[in-house]
Design a protein around this nucleic acid. Structure first.
Lengths: 189, 189
DNA sequence: TTCGCTTTTTGATCCATGTCAAATGAATCG
DNA sequence: CGATTCATTTGACATGGATCAAAAAGCGAA
């Protein structure tokens, strides 16, 4: 996996004019992060949204001292603490790099600026959000009404790469089960 | 509760010009539905998004013959099978009126038309979606990491009107528990 | 007001998954 | 390489919530 340019990814959605491309390239700042580096700490404002060109991030928080993973973003995906980012409020979640990663990050204020300057990006924002909403809905249903094993199978099938690149402890909490249970499910395969 | 005009509700978000107001008023068709009437059946395409001016709707589906409520939309809220609506694919959920309701419904194609005709509505769409995304995220966390009682308390506190207007059986499945468990939680209060 | 149907509660029992504790296996580093 | 730390598995036991069955309470229609 050699990574994916964010411009190319965005151009799936709307036609990117040369002028917009230049602007996007200027606004989405390249950033390299090392494995385990924290990008956002719970309690801080979440000021940027990042596109993962190469690497892996996770969002997580603590519930009763337990580390609970909330999402994983692999190559070609956007990552931010959506809730906090949209409302520009304090984030309840932390964001951390799972691997050395190459990101392209856009600051909230610059995104608002972009929306004003290139109104067609409103459309872009809306459509990306529709995609992420749909995913979240799927996940909610998965968690609410499937058994641990069913959730495991579903993730295994829909995002096998997660199993290759993310430690099982994180995957377990993401699936809403304990590490021990995940281990037993795998053993029973 | 005498209901809420959808125009007024939208104008919280962006300035609605007179021209846009006229257009919105024309595109959002008024529709009255009776209690228990089905608006969408699972397997159909979901062609409209509805604003509930007065009344109550729910989304639900069947899992192993059990009727599972997915959401409730009361006065002032939008309702659709988001997943199916965005992608214009078959809906996995049914939508039904819980009360006699007065709706304003917008067809998908007309929404796309609206986006083209009034680009500022892209912004409207994006912002509404941000709100609904945030809610869904909250709900996911609630379901994944709170006990039945905690989820009950949270809903009770955040949307007490749901308890007044929706049968307990529907609320139970929405909370991801059985009706019996919900009953016991209430009894223990 | 009573009949029939739906909603809600109560009781007894069972099971999937959690918790706690400890063993094993993998990975990193001086 | 050992040594230290982190990741994963295994075992024994506890428990929240499910299931099945039936009683009780609400409620609309004639």
């Amino acid at each position: 996996m050699s990574g994916m340019s964010f411009i190319k990814s965005l151009s799936r959605i709307i036609e990117i004019s040369p002028a917009l491309e230049v602007r996007l390239d200027g606004l989405f700042r390249e950033r390299q992060v090392k494995k385990n580096e924290m990008l956002v700490q719970a309690g801080e404002k979440c000021t940027s949204i990042c596109f993962v060109e190469e690497g892996a991030l996770r969002g997580f928080y603590f519930k009763d001292d337990k580390d609970i993973s909330n999402w994983f973003a692999l190559d070609g995906e956007f990552a931010t603490s959506f809730y906090a980012f949209f409302g520009q409020t304090k984030s309840y979640e932390n964001i951390q790099a799972l691997e050395n990663s190459r990101l392209r990050c856009l600051h909230y204020d610059e995104l608002q600026q972009l929306y004003r300057e290139f109104p067609e990006t409103e459309r872009l924002g809306r459509i990306i959000l529709e995609e992420y909403y749909s995913r979240l809905e799927e996940r909610l249903i998965s968690i609410q009404f499937r058994s641990a094993k069913e959730r495991f199978d579903h993730l295994m099938q829909s995002r096998p790469d997660v199993f290759r690149r993310v430690p099982l402890g994180h995957i377990a909490s993401y699936l809403g089960i304990t590490q021990e249970t995940l281990s037993r499910i795998r053993a029973a395969q």
